[in-house]
């Protein structure tokens, strides 16, 4: 139960961070969304045994976090929190892919271990990039930017409502679980009870959805959510988008650590 309550707190925390006022925060949401998407595509599309080539990419989130004046510990904490999922995905690689790939002194390193590390690194990069995007922009603004970039309204409106009501839903769920715990004397939730709790929550959600729809109709809702559009794509946004995008593409096309290595060997 405490975990659910902490979860609510965490989402609120991202929201508070979006209220800061740094250079990164001032950028137009669209420029950040575009660069983040490109960054994620470039990172994910690298070769499965790539590790050295991914290292330059770490610069991006680190610089953004520093410029936005965010605490690094927050993002580390979040990464550790979600890491079990990716560990579970990657852990089988060392067992299935045992072909030796390289030698480090007396140790032979199999391809599985290299791809395992590569997956972990890619996971860290993409998750941090997405978190930095939301923490420096705010979820509603990200949704609006997506809409302006051509994502169908059906999806962006769904996302907005999901975000608005996740707090209400979590609170309702927490109350139900709390009332269960108070009368269960330490026993875990039985599957049968779970079924009822989940069903109940679903019915309540449907009821609420009905009431929200009613409230929207009362104020003239006709299928479209309009907003006062005041966003401007300034020169700084162009500069940010073009420089970061070209950097990311260079990182992807040129293996900078390898390049530096060969240069070093040739010189000496």
């Amino acid at each position: 139960m405490a975990n659910i309550e902490n979860g609510i707190c965490d989402i609120g925390c991202l929201d508070r961070m979006a209220d800061h006022n740094s250079i990164i925060h001032k950028l137009d949401a669209r420029s950040k969304v575009l660069t983040t998407i490109l960054f994620i595509i470039m990172v994910v599309s690298t070769n499965k045994y790539e590790i050295a080539g991914l290292v330059p990419f770490t610069l991006m989130p680190i610089i953004l976090i520093a410029l936005a004046d965010f605490p690094f510990s927050f993002f580390l904490h979040k990464l550790i929190l979600v890491s079990p999922f990716v560990l579970f995905v990657a852990i089988f690689n060392p067992f299935f892919d045992q072909a030796p790939l390289c030698k480090l002194g007396h140790f032979t390193i199999s391809g599985g271990w290299v791809s395992f590390l590569s997956i972990i690194l890619r996971f860290c990069l993409t998750v941090t990039a997405a978190l930095v995007l939301i923490a420096s922009t705010g979820f509603p603004q990200v949704c609006r930017a997506l809409e302006q970039l051509g994502v169908p309204k059906v999806f962006t409106i769904q996302l907005l409502f999901l975000y608005r009501y996740i707090f209400v839903l979590l609170e309702e769920g927490t109350r139900m679980i709390r009332s269960h715990n108070l009368r269960s004397f330490g026993r875990k939730i039985h599957l049968r009870v779970y079924k009822h709790l989940a069903g109940n929550l679903l019915l309540r959600t449907l009821d609420r959805a009905n009431r929200i729809h009613m409230a929207m109709l009362c104020r003239g809702f006709d299928g479209e959510i309009r907003s006062l559009n005041t966003d401007k794509f300034n020169r700084s946004d162009y500069i940010f988008t073009i420089t970061t995008c070209s950097l990311v593409v260079i990182f992807r096309l040129v293996n900078l650590p390898q390049f530096a290595g060969t240069l070093f060997i040739r010189l000496f």
């Binding site: 979820f139 509603p140 608005r164 009431r211």
Partner: peptide
């Protein structure tokens, strides 16, 4: 119309 539960009425972010 002002609804009983304000959460139903305040649906924007």
């Amino acid at each position: 119309m002002v609804f009983q539960d304000s959460d139903d009425q305040l649906f924007m972010s």
